[in-house]
Design a protein around this nucleic acid. Sequence first.
DNA 1: CAGTGGTCTAGACCACGTG
DNA 2: ACGTGGTCTAGACCACTGC
Lengths: 224, 224
Amino acid sequence: MSTPIYLQIKNIIKEEILNKQSNEVIESERALANRLSASRMTVRRAIDELVEEGYLYRKKNKGTFVADKTLWKKSTIEQHTYRDNIEYHLINFDVKFTVKKEVSEKLELPQSNLPSIIRAVRVVYKNKKPQKIEEFFILRSHIKEKNINKFDKLLDLNSYLSESVMSQKFIPMIVPIKYAQTLKLAIDQPIIMTEGIVRDTSGMAYIYYKAYSHPKYDTIETTF
Amino acid sequence: MSTPIYLQIKNIIKEEILNKQSNEVIESERALANRLSASRMTVRRAIDELVEEGYLYRKKNKGTFVADKTLWKKSTIEQHTYRDNIEYHLINFDVKFTVKKEVSEKLELPQSNLPSIIRAVRVVYKNKKPQKIEEFFILRSHIKEKNINKFDKLLDLNSYLSESVMSQKFIPMIVPIKYAQTLKLAIDQPIIMTEGIVRDTSGMAYIYYKAYSHPKYDTIETTF
DNA sequence: CAGTGGTCTAGACCACGTG
DNA sequence: ACGTGGTCTAGACCACTGC
């Protein structure tokens, strides 16, 4: 088996608590270690992660318990993906060698010898309804060569985020006129614009994006 | 010493990397364990948390490195507290036995035999400027008796969050007229209203709150 | 080959809650 | 007195990197 034991145990526990009530106590760490023929530290690591992900909670000197099902989700901004029908319509795609000051500042680009920047604009539909408009500015040099022609890979933020860090700002505004029609909004509708910068582990900014969200379909939700 | 060794080590490392450059390699886990007279697993635990918090990153078979300083912050909504001068002005405080439908739904209150609810409204000032207006609805039964008369304890969300889970929604809107003046905003200014529900580990909702943020001073920012 | 992080073991002691 | 989670130790093997 190449998958680590603690991950196997994690999945076993995850399955077993499906049949349990919220706030029901689970087996003790020692009992689990014994039953699954693993050391207690390995079981603890599995439980540690399940606690971190909101599936379980611990009470000192009492035991470990199944968390309320409504808490079984982690803080992720990209909320969709559950059973929703998500579609992307690319409405713009080009490579630039000059960009607006705003973009070059956010990506901390050099004044001269500007690198090439991929700019893409797409509409995200959720269950056939327009949900948000996203504008991406991506440093061409950071795209793996084999992905360069696959828009889906290119614009799937999740495939980058595991090795990178994203910081986001939420900015209130009136929907820009040019996007009002696409989002099927009145021209004076307040929306949230999300501005994000993705950096690799060395701190280099390589994606700048702005997303204009429909206020009704795309309520941004996070859990701590 | 009652503070765990792994926390002491965490702080030692945190101090030592202040004098290092970004992407500079740090001592190996074994070397640290040796120098600090701890086992490697204990050192690992300290490093694990520092990686989780964005201070360090690891490269398999290579070493552990100092992360870029701009990544040294974790996803917290309550951004202030650094060096900012934060003040709270309580502008309303009472105990209710009937609440609007909106609140009773969010807190999942019973139809009859309504529990008492504490309602508080306060203005948060940051460096003497109004930053946001917060409305809290708190289940009286969840307040520890000794805190009941200390507004600061009562309304310090951080003192609850360690044992609870908060979920938030960000909703765009035009600033409500009754708050426009307090926030020093034009009456047609778009803002973000943050709606939050805090649940204890058993899943019971006990705080409902709404925060109306000034768009300029309180840009909500998160890191993943 | 030596050194790294990733995983794992089989013990150990502690503080605390409940019977 | 016993069981719980919280912490800690001193080893171990693996896959991989760089010299």
